[in-house]
Each structure stands twice: as structure tokens, then as C-alpha cells.
Nucleic acid binder design. Structure first.
Lengths: 136, 136, 136, 136
DNA sequence: GTGGTCTAGACCACG
DNA sequence: GTGGTCTAGACCACG
């Protein structure tokens, strides 16, 4: 199931919001591996946006190995998430996300221990929320 | 002192990179309250970018109360940087940045220790890059 | 320099033809690392197609680390081609290309030695064509 | 005999996968000239796909002179499969497929020996998968 | 002027 | 009905 709403005023493009939402849903096990996603047109209607925008989000997720398209049938969560990226690229992407945290923390005057404990807390919260989920 | 380098191919616009850098320098006390900033043209020359780009960064910081313009004299760090963020707002913003790291890490199949050590490493690297550290 | 023409009757989508053409030009050293590509609008005019179609091709190449965008300036061949893909993904992509050769060969009744020698010949021809090029 | 499996998430449409498989079986003599093919519905059941999809593949092969339909009886391998491709055409098609491999390999930074051994491996794997091999 | 995003609408291949 | 491609045209951020 996919239920979310967009933040139209955000500086994050709509298609990116969709991408992030689906990534999150997969990570949290709310979208099961192999599960079918709503047809692009349906999702577009619900979100009151153009179908092309949804298609673009789906395309990006397909290219990243998170989703799979079966022609004439629909789009599905990939049976197993392919490891598409090289170690260097994985590191790069993680570093990029961490950099955002770093900037935010410095700007807001948080210390390393504060950030670290916030990270650990959120990580554990996520674990318990997705207990029986697809990921141990 | 302002010493930093830009990442022209980053998805963060150049003017935002400048804004973030100055905010951080002020937060860390590397730019003293009341201290004068280099003229826009000078900074633009050093960074080999368009002067308009620096001007835009200064404008945004002036609008946010971090900098002050004294006409005919120059741009200065505001005498008292107003405290923009409430504690709740600070926590919310940090949590949001960490959430991005969390989902990226889960999708790329990183473990908590890996993320934690990457965070610590980047934090320390940043510290050493901006040596003079500490705040008065 | 980019000079090529489209095959509108082909079953290969236009944006894919552009992608393949640029990949080839980079592989052959006809597009130097760091070189700027023509603005999407210009290329679209030359090819008499919609700018969005060119943009889509550029986007895909940026995502694959072949090109880089510098905001407000233009699109460039990446300084060094990033190794974006995992070993598994690289193998997968190579296998996919080889599979096409295999099918074609079986259908046209070529033997393995014939295919192998054709491969070696084309490889060597490419080497000599790009002698002084970016790749040894 | 027709025994093969489909790749539903492939970018090759299912009906094309069927067409290629039958062409190959005929080229390799695994399907004898004049031999009857399974009724479309039977094949569709085995492959767990829509009968229309099989029908479409048969249609294309009939149109190309590989198969023949005898009304009320069934579909058969044509008594004499006409030779569609000239030698020049065969070479051109093979060269084109190899060119794709070449550019993919260069971009993914594979060496000639790596590509050659991947080719040989896939060729042999294919041979063993379709054991009964040889041609009469 | 440059690329990035989005809409509206069309047509097509596939199953 | 499903996704994939393309056009035409608009608006925006950036430099």
C-alpha cells in the first residue's frame, strides 16, 4: 500500500518526493518484495499530478534496481534488491547523506556525541518498527 | 577568514555552498561577531565564480540576520546573530537529516557500525580541515 | 564535437540513440574528458527533435556518471568516468550485451570461432582508431 | 521439442523471446523441418502467459516464412525455410551486435580477455542448456 | 543562456 | 489496462 501526500511548497521536486517515499516504504517493509505498485495513472490521480511525473519516479527506481517493470503488466518491487552500485559509489552516496547531517549539525550547534546518539536511537526505532519485516 | 573550496558539479548550488560555509563559520566562531567579510568581488575572484553569485549569498545571509550591510563600508557579521531555531525545531531538523542517512544506508545495505564510523570519520575530517577550531 | 543523425524508423527510441552515440563518442575519445556538450536546445534543433528528448538522454548519462552538469553553465563529459556500478552489475551488463551477440550468431548460424575472431578484429580496429586517445 | 524459460522482467518482450527461441531451435535443427509445433494454448499454459502472446509470436514467424499454418491442423516448421540473409547482411548484423559489446566493455572498463572469456563461457553455457545440440 | 521540472496530451507496444 | 516515448510549451533556479 502506498499512502502519502506531497509537500508542494517544498524545494524537493515532486518526482523526488515520490522516489524517497517509495524507497522508505521498501526499507520499512511496508512495500513487500515482489509486491505490485499502483499503476502510474492511478497514483497520479490520487496525488493530483501528471502521470509523467509518477512515471519519472518509477523510471528512476527501476534504474536503481529497486523496482522492476513487467511489460504490459505493471511495476513491482524487485524480487531482491539488486546490488547495482560499486563499493565506491555506495560510499559516495552514504557520505553525501552524512554530509547533510554534518552541515545541519554544525549549523545548529550539535556535538558529535549528540548526533551519534540521535543516529543510534533512530536506527533502533526503525528496527523495532519493522520487526517481523523483510530485513533482520 | 574565509577559506573553502566549491564543488561545481554538486547538486547544491554554488550560492548555497557559500551560504552554508559562512553560517558554519559564524556558528563555530571562526567569523567573529562584527567582523567584516571580504568584498563580494574579492571572494568571487578567489573562487573563480561570478560576482553575482557571491552577492546572492550575502543577500540571503543579510535577509536572515546573519550578516549586516553598512552602506559604503562593507558587509559584516551581525553584532548579535538572532537565535532562529527553537530547541524543537533544531531536533526536528537534525532528525530529518538523519532519517535520510538511515534510509540510504538501509537501501545500500550498510550496517549501523559502518554508518557510525563513517559519520565519525567525516566529522573528524571536517574538524581538521577547519583547524583553528573552537569557539570563544 | 557531436555530429550524427537519427534513424527515426528504428525501434530504438530516439533518446537511447543519443545515449549510445555519446557513449560511443566518449569511448572513442571523440569527446574528450571534461569537454562541454552542446546545449540541449542546440542539439535538439540540429536533430529536429524536442529538447526534452535530449534532456532525457543527458539525464541518463549523468546518472551513469558519464556526464556531469554544472548548474547554469552546461553539461560536460565527466572529468574521470566514475565507477558507478558494482562488479555484479558490470558483469550483468556485459553479459546482456554478449547475449545479444549470442542470439544473433546462433540465428545467423555463426560458429564460436567466427564470433571470437570478429570480436578480436573489431577490438583491435577500435584500438588503432583511438591510438593517441584518452585510453591506452 | 520446445523447452525454455522466459525472463518476464527483461527488456525483450515476451513474444520476441518466443520468436527468438523458435528461430534458434529451427536454425540448430532441434525443430525439424515440417515438424509440428505445440498448439498455442498448450505452450501458453506451460509458460503461464497469455495465449495471445504465443499467437503473436507464431504470426510473426509465419509472416517471416519460418513457420506454416495448416488450417484446422496446426502450425508447422516450414518445409523449406527460405534463406533470408545475404552473407553481407549476416556480417553486418553480427558486427553491429559485437559493436554494442565493445562499447559497453570499454565504458565498464573490461579488457579484451575478459570479454572473450565471458563470451566463451556464455556460449558453452548455452550449448549445455540446449543439450541435444548438433544439427542433422 | 543554461539545465531542471512539470503539465497536458498523444500514440504506441505489450499482454 | 499497463508502461514507454515523444511533443509542445511553460516556468523556474542558477550564474
Amino acid at each position: 500500500m502506498l499512502a502519502f501526500s506531497l509537500v508542494p511548497t517544498s524545494d524537493v521536486p515532486i518526482y523526488r518526493q515520490i522516489v524517497q517515499h517509495i524507497r522508505r516504504a521498501v526499507a520499512q517493509g511496508k512495500l513487500q518484495l515482489g509486491e505490485q505498485l499502483p499503476p502510474g495513472r492511478t497514483l497520479a490521480e490520487e496525488l493530483v499530478i501528471n502521470p509523467n511525473t509518477v512515471a519519472r519516479a518509477y523510471q528512476e527506481l527501476i534504474r536503481d534496481g529497486v523496482l522492476e517493470s513487467r511489460s504490459g503488466v505493471g511495476v513491482f518491487v524487485a524480487a531482491r534488491v539488486r546490488q547495482v552500485f560499486s563499493q565506491a559509489e555506495r560510499d559516495r552516496r552514504l557520505a553525501h547523506a552524512i554530509e547533510q547531517v554534518l552541515y545541519e549539525a554544525l549549523l545548529l550547534d550539535f556535538s558529535l556525541p549528540e548526533v551519534r546518539s540521535a543516529l543510534e536511537e533512530q536506527w533502533k526505532t526503525h528496527q523495532t518498527q519493522t520487526q517481523a519485516g523483510g530485513r533482520k
